[in-house]
Design a protein around this nucleic acid. Structure first.
Lengths: 345, 345
DNA sequence: ACGATCAGTGTAATCGATTACATCAGGCCT
DNA sequence: AGGCCTGATGTAATCGATTACACTGATCGT
């Protein structure tokens, strides 16, 4: 590989001049500029970024760390980040942690050691992830928390309006006459888990309904746990007449369990779920879904990151993005049993 | 951030000794080792990989470039790669190109400039992608082609048995009495597009059936084109009695179009599709799917990559991985019209 | 006409690691 | 005792860029 030195020799100038040309410095004569350009062309020279990064102590790379690359929610968010990064002439590197704290820490450490310009992270644990993330912050590497807050770290954060979403969904079920509403919730150590439960409780309280602890099943968002939670709820002596499922992947499992029991969400037990995956759009039958603006979530996170890269001093901001309740057709009122005819697809 | 120098001073040794300790060289006294370890600990020292990479001209990072991060096929392959990379104590960086040649080239250039140790690429164009990839090969950076061959580049390659898969699927339809089988194919410039068509034609030929060009619609694998192709086929004066769809995302669109026309794949027009996405497992109704061992595909690619990183001289290998035809329940024979009763989910 | 300013350029230091080479002490062999 | 090997360590070169600083001539203002 050709180096600046080679280019300098061929162009008959010093390496300093080559570098100035390459980086668009103003005080270079047009001739020098032209000769360097020709030499670069001739040698097929491409600057070594490792050397550059070492010298300037920064890079044109930003990274995003997500817990599950198979979950369409995160992937869709990544798309939003990606487009912003590309537009800013950076490249985006993606790390997948599989919800493993150690893998997450490893990614962070390597990225820092490799001099990444910024990190967007959807932490696998709102509290315990902070140990590793803090290292980034301390090194002055901009960090944006995505979808999940970093407990006790003062960083830019982009979140969905989980409380509002959950409350809206619960309100909706209550409006349809349900009073015994099961909740298949996420863990307290993750923002969406915590806040979605809060929205649910707020809605119940607003309607003077009690929170029955027996109706609330806390999971760690893993589909297998959703299955168990659904079984417990459905096996209860007095099962709920509706359920709010706090993740899309979990909803798929809940519906599998209901199918086994010949329960139809339009007839027997109403279901509303957060929409994480493309899968949800294909559920048979369709159910009401809480959709999040995933792409915009990613965009917003990337914008915050670049803003901070540009001005590291500004105070940390937290953005909340709207959610929507997406109704398929109609949802059964509690007690009713219309069993609308099925139709293909 | 602390540097080797700081560690050296604190430990009372030279930077050379620090480096030797850090890299596990044999000839270091136990005391020196201990003192360095303590200094490292005390300072929270972490080696700067940029500097290291510059010096040793390599890194512990491998990259995979895929055309569509929203397509579960690729993502699942990535998981296979990832696990191997982690096991080999490397980290994996993922680039998504959205089928854009320019983005692909940009990723490759940046990765090379950043000194990546190896690249696994699922090219967005079997021929035109080679321009950029060739630069990697010429720089001596190991490259593995994944799922799609790089025309005219002699690199390690991992492929699915596309011909066999397609032939098996077509055989299956023929065995069920179909003679007019539509093909919604992929483009010739991608291995899966080309080979799946070949398998289809081989199967027809083996049974003495003619290849009717009117039944073959070539697409670029984009779902929207699948929709058009399906429309054309179904609108034909003599429509096919069965269709083989060469990608999972396309199959979803084809089924949408059939649903609009009230056509049931179990009753009216048989359907077999390649299984790319989780979506396919949730199709209503389910159809026969050709499944590929995506995870193993990724694993194999990663193994080839590491093998080559270890020994750059070995001749390029091409691996073919088996596929399976996954039957849901039963598929209608041509002309039959059983319309088995529907059941939830 | 003389100093100040400035455009254009080069020399060499620098980023933070690795490592070739030099050095030195001690042990061993003859 | 002298030479040789070996283990442990240090000095300084090196990777390939950027850039502080120095220098040269030319231009300009007074």
């Amino acid at each position: 590989m050709a180096t600046v030195k080679d280019v300098a020799v061929l162009a008959g100038v010093s390496t300093a001049t080559v570098s100035r040309v390459l980086n668009g410095h103003p005080n270079v004569s047009p001739e020098a500029r032209a000769r360097v350009a020709r030499a670069v062309e001739q040698l097929g020279y491409r600057p070594n970024r490792v050397a550059r990064n070492l010298r300037v102590q920064t890079s044109q790379t930003v990274a995003v760390i997500i817990p599950d690359i198979q979950n369409n929610f995160f992937v869709s968010v990544v798309r939003g980040i990606e487009d912003v990064a590309i537009a800013r002439d950076h490249i985006l590197l993606l790390g997948n942690t599989d919800d493993s704290l150690s893998r997450e820490a490893r990614y962070i450490d390597v990225l820092l050691a490799e001099g990444v310009a910024g990190i967007i992270i959807c932490a696998s644990d709102g509290e315990r992830s902070c140990v590793a993330v803090r290292r980034a912050v301390e090194q002055g590497v901009p960090v944006v928390a995505l979808d999940r807050q970093l407990q006790g770290l003062d960083v830019d954060t982009v979140l969905a309006d989980n409380v509002g979403a959950s409350r809206m969904a619960t309100d909706y079920l209550i409006a349809n006459g349900h009073t015994r509403i099961g909740l298949i919730a996420g863990p307290d150590y993750l923002t969406p888990g915590r806040e979605r439960r809060e929205g649910y409780e707020q809605a119940l309280a607003a309607h003077g309904l009690p929170v029955d602890p027996g109706l609330v099943k806390v999971t760690d968002f893993r589909p297998s746990q959703a299955r168990e939670a659904a079984q417990t709820l459905l096996d209860a002596p007095e099962p709920p007449t509706a359920m709010l499922v706090c993740s899309g992947l979990m909803a798929v499992e809940v519906m599998r369990e209901m199918a086994v029991r010949q329960l139809d969400p339009r007839r027997d037990i109403a279901l509303v779920a957060f929409d994480d995956t493309v899968l949800n759009r294909c559920l048979c039958p369709p159910i009401p879904l809480i959709t999040q603006s995933t792409y915009e979530l990613g965009q917003a996170a990337a914008e915050l990151l670049f803003a901070r890269m540009h001005d590291p001093q500004q105070p940390a901001r937290t953005l909340r993005l709207q959610t929507r309740l997406l109704l398929p057709e109609s949802v059964p009122a509690a007690g009713a049993s219309p069993a609308s005819g099925r139709q293909p697809s």
